[in-house]
C-alpha cells in the first residue's frame, strides 16, 4: 500500500468517525427526551441524572392519555381531545390549501396569470413574522366572530400554508411536458379536464410531497393557536405548553412523553419527504 493510499484511508476513517459522532450528539436531545419519557417519578430529578431509566415504565404515557387524579388534574385532563383537534384542524386546512393551491398553481404555471407580481403577493405573507400580523388579524377575527373556533383556526392555517402550497405545486407543475397538454387540447378537453385528467396524475408524487409538507407545518404551529384559539380549540402544542407552565415545570416524565407523542407524526411525515424538505422551505427556489 502506498503512502498516499494510507493517508487517504486514514482521512476517510476520520471522516466516518467524525460524522457518526456529530450525528450521535445532534440526536442527543431527542434521545434524552425518549429516555425521560420512560422514567419513573423519582428518577426525573435525581442528581447525577440517569441516562437510561433503571426501571422503565409507561406510566407517563398513561398519564398523558388518561390524566390522573393527582395535583395536576385541575390543569390537565387528557391529551386525546387536543390530539384529535390537531389532527382535524391540520388535515382539513391542509386539504383545503391543497385544493386551492392546485387551482392557483395550475393557473400560474399554465397561463402565467398576473406575472411575477402575483407570485410576489403570494410569497409575501410567509416572509412576515406572524406576530406582526396577529394583532390586526385578531381584531378582524373578533369582528367576524372567528376567535376560539375551529373554522377560524382552519382559515388562518390555510392562509399561512397557501404560499407553500401554491409555490411547491407550481414547481412540480412546471415540469409537466408540453406535449401532453397540446395533445389534450387537440382532443378538445376543457382546462378543468386537462388539470384533472392529465396534470394531476403526472404530478401525483409532488402532490403527496406538498400535502405532507403542509401537514408538518400545520401540526407544528403554535403562535396562531396560542393567540387565536387557545380557549376554544386546544391543539397538541398548546397542551404541551400548558403542561409546562405553573407548578408543572419539573414534571419531566409526562412532558417528555407528550413531546415524543407530538413529534412522532411530523417525524414520520418528514422522513417520507426528506428529499424535498429543502425544496419546501425555500419556496421552490431550490431545485429538486
Amino acid at each position: 500500500m502506498s503512502d498516499s493510499m494510507m493517508k487517504y484511508n486514514v482521512r476517510k476513517g476520520l471522516a466516518h468517525i467524525f460524522l457518526y459522532a456529530v450525528t450521535a450528539s445532534l440526536l442527543f436531545p431527542l434521545f434524552w427526551m425518549l429516555m425521560t419519557s420512560f422514567k419513573s417519578p423519582n428518577e426525573w430529578v435525581t442528581y447525577p441524572p440517569t441516562w437510561i431509566p433503571t426501571e422503565p415504565t409507561i406510566s407517563n404515557y398513561r398519564f398523558i392519555f388518561f390524566g390522573s387524579a393527582g395535583r395536576f388534574a385541575r390543569t390537565y385532563s387528557s391529551a386525546v381531545i387536543p390530539y384529535l383537534n390537531t389532527a382535524f384542524v391540520a388535515v382539513t386546512s391542509t386539504l383545503v390549501a391543497i385544493v386551492i393551491g392546485v387551482l392557483g398553481s395550475y393557473s400560474l404555471s399554465r397561463f402565467k396569470t398576473g406575472g411575477s407580481l402575483t407570485l410576489l403577493s403570494i410569497i409575501m405573507p410567509r416572509m412576515f413574522p406572524p406576530m406582526a400580523m396577529i394583532i390586526p388579524l385578531m381584531i378582524f377575527f373578533q369582528l367576524i366572530r372567528a376567535i376560539d373556533t375551529y373554522w377560524g383556526l382552519i382559515i388562518v392555517y390555510i392562509g399561512f400554508t397557501l404560499p407553500y402550497s401554491v409555490l411547491m405545486l407550481k414547481g412540480f407543475m412546471d415540469g409537466v411536458p408540453k406535449e401532453f397538454t397540446e395533445a389534450a387540447m387537440l382532443d378538445g378537453l376543457s382546462e378543468w379536464q386537462i388539470l384533472y385528467k392529465i396534470w394531476l396524475p403526472i404530478i401525483k408524487n409532488g402532490l403527496m410531497t406538498t400535502t405532507l409538507f403542509l401537514l408538518i407545518l400545520n401540526w407544528t404551529e403554535y403562535t396562531f393557536a396560542l393567540t387565536l384559539s387557545s380557549r376554544g380549540v386546544e391543539t397538541i402544542t398548546l397542551t404541551l405548553a400548558k403542561l409546562f407552565s405553573n407548578e408543572a415545570g419539573t414534571y419531566y416524565g409526562p412532558q417528555s412523553a407528550l413531546g415524543i407523542l407530538a413529534a412522532i407524526p411530523t417525524i414520520i411525515f418528514g422522513i417520507f419527504i426528506h428529499k424535498h424538505l429543502a425544496y419546501g422551505f425555500t419556496f421552490g427556489a431550490l431545485k429538486r
Binding site: 445532534l26 436531545p29 434524552w32 447525577p48 441524572p49 403554535y222 413529534a263 411530523t266 418528514g270 424538505l277
Partner: peptide, 25 residues
C-alpha cells in the same frame, strides 16, 4: 441528520428545558 427540522418548535423548547434543567445532563 435532518430530523430536528421536522419537530414542532414547542417540543424543541421542551427538549432543551429537559437537558438544561438544574439536574440535567
Amino acid at each position: 441528520l435532518i430530523i430536528p427540522i421536522m419537530i414542532p418548535p414547542i417540543v424543541i423548547g421542551n427538549n432543551f428545558w429537559l437537558i438544561f434543567s438544574a439536574n440535567g445532563p
